[in-house]
Design a protein around this nucleic acid. Sequence first.
DNA 1: CCGTATCCTCCTCGATACTG
DNA 2: CAGTATCGAGGAGGATACGG
Lengths: 134, 134
Amino acid sequence: MATMTAEQRRRQAKLAYNAYVAECPSRQVLDAISDKWVTLVLSALDEGPMRYSDLARRIAGVSQKMLTQTLRMLERDGLLTRTITPSVPVRVDYELTPLGETILPVVGAIKQWSEAHIEQIHEARAGYDERNPS
Amino acid sequence: MATMTAEQRRRQAKLAYNAYVAECPSRQVLDAISDKWVTLVLSALDEGPMRYSDLARRIAGVSQKMLTQTLRMLERDGLLTRTITPSVPVRVDYELTPLGETILPVVGAIKQWSEAHIEQIHEARAGYDERNPS
DNA sequence: CCGTATCCTCCTCGATACTG
DNA sequence: CAGTATCGAGGAGGATACGG
């Protein structure tokens, strides 16, 4: 449309850019693993398969709702499998898939960088907060 | 308190666990870089210092508010510097610090894993959604 | 040019209660 | 045991308008 105002063109560009960013693989993966409980679940399962109740106990702060939601997301993304044993009472086991295992080194890299540099970050924050009170 | 109920003990444990997780270096760093605009800003600045308006143009989808907020966070964490030149009109330049540069490989690792495996994830999602309609 | 201030909306997440 | 259903508070983030 040649008759678009500059205003309209800017909005269009913004929408297009945001759609593009949303499709970005890095963005999708980052969104997935930055979820509060995801790394905790993945790390726990790295030590072997676990039942729902094991995970709930191990990750003490999580609510039932969030644990279930997190597990469903990870199952949907193919990072873990969910196996139901229809005994009474039922038993549900979760286990990392090979794909799920391949992402652990990435999480490990983040962990390593974090532990190596968190001190510097804290110092930077303290300095900044001192220079900028309020 | 020995007179605590089981209910109270569970709440205590949950609070303690959440406080512990909040302090975790990985958590803090993950929270920082998983922000929608952070990786885009860091990547842009990897190519060299930039003015505020350069960043705004380059990252087309961001609002002024979010761009400023993101830059302040990164400055506070010591990942970039902010230099004001009090000309008229003012000029503000942003530049990565050495610390900021060291985090780029981590972001790169995420990007690499994502691009290598996003296809598998999309297939897993499609399969899951087919098996679980609704 | 580089922001701040305000308002307003959506959406996440926890708490709680209930079920096969 | 392993969830689902519902509600409500709180925060993130965009739009808009204004300021140094």
